[in-house]
Amino acid sequence: MKDFAFFDAQCAIGAPILGNARGGETAAGLLAEMDRNGVDKALVAHANTEAAGAIFANENLLELIRADDVDNRLTGVWTILPAQCGELPPPDEFFAQMAANRVGALNLFPVAHRWQACRLTIGRLMDAAAERRIPVFLGQRIMDGGWRGVFDFMRTFPAATVIINGVSLWGPDRNIRPLLENFPGCHVELSEYWVPEGIADLARLYGAERLLYGSGYPRFGHGSTMLSIRHSGLPLEQVRLIASQNLERLLAQAQLV
């Protein structure tokens, strides 16, 4: 087992507004499930960001992680907002705060937080994030227009380092393949990619370095995608890339300070 380290790219903790946290209210709950399944590390967002907002979620996420993560196995994901209202510090300061607080990636919820994801609102931040290769999570569920919103975002910020998440269980190849083909900085986390033999197909077409293990916790458990990656049929060195090494690389290459 330990010849396969797993680094989970898609986790969330915190109490959702509608309940049903399935044990993920605290980092302790997540860490226990990671241990039960043999997952080493995780990149963690707040489970209630859409309802509670970026300001609360960014702060509360750190509190939750610090309360239980004594071995520093968890890395945070912070949520961005438009620059004009001054709710977040300027990019350099924001990125420095991320580094100081073990936060390694960004996400955004423009529909829930009622703003337009475009160059006018986040151009300066996204240009800086792209230049510093800071990973940004992007998903069809949270963008205005679904996949159209994802495509618009990628056309607007083609140099961004992006992790496409929440791809939907209804085989998303018609949408993710054009993104992988056209944007070299685009990656896909696999928690909802359940296509038979599909992981190997994507790796052969676009490279195993574009794919990331993600559990989707707490909606999904850790184990099912672990087994589908383990037995994807790919060479072991590519399995290891997908299981953990790609995410390690993305976080290491991000220049937060």
Binding site: E197, S224, M226, S228
Partner: peptide, 10 residues
């Protein structure tokens, strides 16, 4: 629709 390893893994 769904990969056998994914579902067996679940």
């Amino acid at each position: 629709w769904f990969d056998e390893y994914q579902h067996v893994g679940g």
